[in-house]
Design a protein around this nucleic acid. Structure first.
Lengths: 213, 213
DNA sequence: TGAAAAATAGAATACTCATTCATACTATTA
DNA sequence: TAATAGTATGAATGAGTATTCTATTTTTCA
C-alpha cells in the first residue's frame, strides 16, 4: 500500500512540475503579466481548477519557479566551488557554472534577469522576499571570494561587493547577448576563459597600461 | 499674435512634459503594468481624457518617455566623446557620462534596465523598435571604441561586441547597487575611476597574473 | 462491488482598467 | 458681446482575466 502511495505522490509531483515547466516557457516568452492562467493551464494540459489545486495563485507559480531554479543553481555552484582552491579558480568556477547553467536553462534566464531589476514590480510578498535573499546570497558568495582573494594578495584591494556586482552584470550581459542570437552560435560555456581573463586582467594591452588620462 | 501662439505651444509642451514626468515616477515605482492611466492622470493633475489628448495610449507614454530620455543621453555621450582622443579616454568618458546621467535620472534607470531585458514583454510596436535601435546604437558606439583601441594596440584583441556588452552590464550593475542603497552614499560618478580601472586592468593583482588554473 | 475520498473540470463571478465620447468649459477674435 | 475654435472633463463602455466553487470523473479499498 505504501508503494502505491509513493507512486501517487511521485505522479502528483510530476504534474506539479508539468505546470511549472509550462509556466516557465510562457513567462519567459511573454512575461508575468502577459501570461494568463488559462494559457498556463492549457499548456500544461489541465483545467484551470486543477492548476489551482497545485498552486494557490499565479504569483505562487512564478515564485515557486524562481525559487526552485535558484536552489538548483545554488547547489550546482556550491558543488563546483568545493572542488577549487585558489580565489582565481573559484571565480573561474563561478563563471563557468553560471554560463553552463543558463546555457541549459535559456528560458529561465529571461525570468531571472527580469527579476534582477524589477522584483518589486512583479511580485510583492513573503515569497518574493525569500527569492531576493537567495539572490543576495549568491552575490555575497562571490563578494566573499573576492574579499578573500584580496586579503591573500591574489587580487587588488577593491570593494568586494562592487566587484561582485560588476561581475554579475558582466555575466548577465554576456548570457543575454548569447541568447539574443537566433542561432545559438557555439556554446556559451566556451566563453568562460575569455570572461575570466577579462575580469582578472581587463581589456588593456599589458604594457600599455598608461595612467588613466 | 504670433507671440501668443508661441506661448500657447510652449504651455502645451509643458503640460506634455508634466504628464511624462508623472508617468516616469509612477512607472519607475510600480512598473508599466501596475501603473494605471488614472494614476498617471491624477499625478499629472489632469483628467484622463486630457492625457489622451497628449498621448494616444499608455504605451505611447511609455515609449515617448524612453525615447526622449535616451536621446538626451545619447546627445550627452556624443558631446563628451568629442572632447577625448585615446580609446582609453573615450571609455572613461562613456563610463563617467553614464554614471553621471543616471545619478541625475535615478527614476529613469529602473525603466531603462528593465527594458534592457524585457522589451518585448512590455511593448511590441514600431515605436518599441525605435527604442531598441537606439539601445543598440549605444552599444555599437562602445564596441567601435573598443575595436579601434584593439587595432591601435591600446587594448588586447577581443570581441568588441562582447566586451561592450560586458561593460554595459558592469555599469548597469553598479548603478543598480548604488540606487538600491536607501541613503545615496556618496556620489555615483565618483566610482568612475575605479570602474575604468576594473575594466581596463581587471581585479588581479599585477604581478600575480598567473595562468588561469 | 460500491461508497467515500481525491482529483479534475470549466462555467460563473467579480473585479480592474484602457479607451471612448458626449458634454462643459475657456480663450480667441470679429 | 457672441460665435467659433480649441481644450478639458470624467462617466460609461467593453475587454480581459484571476480566482472561486459546484459538479463530474477517477481512484481507493473494505
Amino acid at each position: 500500500m505504501n508503494q502505491r502511495a509513493l507512486r501517487k505522490t511521485r505522479e502528483q509531483e510530476g504534474r506539479r512540475l508539468d505546470i511549472l515547466n509550462a509556466a516557465e516557457r510562457l513567462f519567459s516568452e511573454n512575461g508575468f503579466f502577459k501570461t494568463s492562467m488559462v494559457e498556463i493551464a492549457e499548456a500544461a494540459e489541465f483545467a484551470i481548477g486543477t492548476v489551482y489545486h497545485f498552486f494557490k495563485s499565479k504569483e505562487d507559480i512564478y515564485i515557486s519557479l524562481i525559487e526552485e531554479k535558484m536552489e538548483d543553481f545554488a547547489r550546482l555552484i556550491d558543488a563546483r566551488l568545493a572542488e577549487t582552491a585558489s580565489s582565481q579558480d573559484k571565480l573561474g568556477a563561478v563563471i563557468r557554472t553560471k554560463l553552463e547553467y543558463f546555457e541549459q536553462n535559456r528560458n529561465f534566464f529571461r525570468i531571472y534577469v527580469s527579476e534582477w531589476s524589477g522584483f518589486e514590480w512583479t511580485v510583492k510578498s513573503a515569497f518574493g522576499e525569500r527569492c531576493w535573499k537567495r539572490y543576495q546570497a549568491q552575490l555575497d558568495l562571490v563578494a566573499d571570494i573576492i574579499e578573500t582573494g584580496s586579503r591573500q594578495g591574489e587580487f587588488r584591494a577593491l570593494d568586494p561587493a562592487e566587484a561582485a556586482f560588476a561581475l554579475h552584470g558582466m555575466l548577465n550581459s554576456t548570457i543575454y547577448l548569447w541568447i539574443l542570437q537566433p542561432k545559438p552560435s557555439g556554446s556559451l560555456v566556451a566563453k568562460s576563459p575569455s570572461l575570466l581573463t577579462l575580469f582578472l586582467h581587463g581589456v588593456a594591452q599589458p604594457g600599455n597600461s598608461r595612467g588613466t588620462t
